[in-house]
């Protein structure tokens, strides 16, 4: 399968602090890829570089053949993605359905739709993530963390992206809700048949969601492979990360 995301030797530093040091990564079409790493290792910076929110110091990022630096095609580039943010990033001033509709209205694919058609798609997507119709007209602040996560997922999938990005998808959720959200994410990606890239520090999430895992350490990819092979991969950092994650799980 062809590569949809190609990250080639990128560097990014802030005030002299090198966060990404020649990081390279290829992600295939329809792959479910997870980026795993400690807090502060540069996962979120990588995500923001991929989204064009941070400009890389050097190196190249292309998605479906479009470079992140191609300003003339920046809208086309951005619309390849949809992202489920760590804190959901639902717009406070809009109701749940308005949040989803707002995403659809910005999408080039849905430019020809009238407001009734947009409303219908938004309603379908909200129902498809397991929310009830009674949440349509309530504001994000009136919902629980799990419900907000579902609403944010509805907004993300409503624009029919080629790549879905999940930033710490279970952060701030209790284990049961986190498990439900993980199932929902896996089922959604499978049903849509699209590429997904998840960023997490949680090994269990990585094991559950991934086809392949990239472990990041000191701003570069330390290891790539299947999650089940992490335990004896021969990379000291990755094995330590695996052991530490399992010790924490066992203690809990």
């Amino acid at each position: 399968m062809r590569n949809i995301i190609s990250i080639n030797n990128i560097h990014k530093s802030f005030a002299g602090l090198h966060v990404l040091n020649g990081l390279s990564l290829e992600i295939s079409e329809k792959e479910t890829h997870v980026i795993l790493g400690q807090s502060g290792c540069g996962k979120s910076v990588l995500l923001k570089c991929l989204l064009g929110i941070f400009e890389v110091d050097s190196g190249e990022i292309t998605v479906a053949g479009i470079s992140v630096n191609d300003k003339q095609r920046s809208k086309e580039y951005m619309q390849k993605f949809s992202i489920l943010f760590q804190g959901n990033a639902l717009f406070d001033s809009m109701t749940v359905i308005e949040n989803v509709e707002f995403g659809i209205k910005q999408s080039l694919k849905h430019k020809h739709l009238n407001s009734k058609e947009i409303r219908k798609i938004a309603e379908e997507k909200i129902i498809s993530v397991g929310l009830e119709s009674r949440v349509f007209d309530i504001y994000p602040a009136e919902m629980s963390g799990g419900m907000q996560k579902r609403a944010a997922l509805a907004r993300a999938i409503a624009v029919e992206p080629e790549v879905l990005l999940f930033d710490e998808p279970t952060s701030g959720l209790d284990p049961i809700t986190g498990g439900l959200i993980c199932n929902l994410l896996r089922d959604t990606v499978k049903k849509l048949g699209i590429t997904s890239l998840t960023i997490t520090h949680d090994l269990k999430v990585a094991e559950f969601l991934s086809d392949r895992v990239s472990v990041i350490n000191k701003g570069t990819v330390a290891w790539i492979g299947q999650a089940k092979n992490m335990k004896n991969c021969g990379n000291e950092f990755v094995e330590e990360f695996y052991r530490a994650s399992n010790v924490i799980s066992a203690r809990h």
Partner: peptide, 17 residues
């Protein structure tokens, strides 16, 4: 400021807004 903290501004940018 709260929108900046809660990544809502980033969300706008990812929607090409």
């Amino acid at each position: 400021g709260s929108m900046r903290v809660s990544e809502q501004i980033d969300a706008l940018m990812t929607m090409s807004v």
